[in-house]
Amino acid sequence: MIHFKRLNDLLSRKYWAPVSAVKEHKGEAMNTLYNFVSGPLAWVAFIIFFVGCLYRLIRILVLVHKKEKYIYTYMSWKYSFRSILHWVIPFATVNWRKHPVLTIVTFAFHICLIITPIFLLSHIILWDESWSVSWWSLPDSLVQAMTLIVIGSCIFFLIRRLISPEVQYVTFASDYIILAIVAAPFVTGFMSYYQWFGYQVFTILHILSGEIMLIAIPFTRLSHMLFSPLTRAYMGSEFGGVRHARDW
């Protein structure tokens, strides 16, 4: 199995060794810190992420149930998916076509953002170590490219926020913070890969930032990951079932 072989290769890879080295030779403090962030804190982060997402979703549905039950009566699977499908395909909507650069960037960004950490070999190894589960991984060079795409996209978003008046006008400090939270794991992950300025620091920083991002998803505007399918489905259902018009 190629799969298995690659894992073994990886364990002996040069960049992995220093991490172990951290454990062996560097100060106890660093070591404990690493163990802490990659152990209990990671647990905490994942639990908060999953439980948080579930909590937010359940809460919003309960709220609908309590106060806006009528919404359920308009929901239609057909029109929900018709709408969602249009919006998750690049250039399938009028507004995507109006903003070709942004469309390319945002799709590249979101795809890389979600795919990279899931199919990253280093991540899979960690899963394998603690849970003995592993899956197919992306080649490193591709991961690096994707990481750069995410970082580049974040820079694009930042610039857009700074120079585009309509975005600038609705920008708050929190928008920059959110952007930083998203960019951080990619930046730090990338740095630790190249072992710039002391990989160990960056590895720890990376893990920390990854955890921060996970925790931030359910509780900030990053929750658009959770709610966007719902808002889209609702609008799609209203447009399809009641208004008999396109919503894309």
Partner: peptide
């Protein structure tokens, strides 16, 4: 209720609605 909350929490401040 939920509708307003979801709209406020979901809006990513991207300005894509402007045009």
């Amino acid at each position: 209720g939920a509708r307003l909350k979801a709209y406020v929490d979901t809006c990513i401040h991207c300005g894509l609605c402007s045009e």
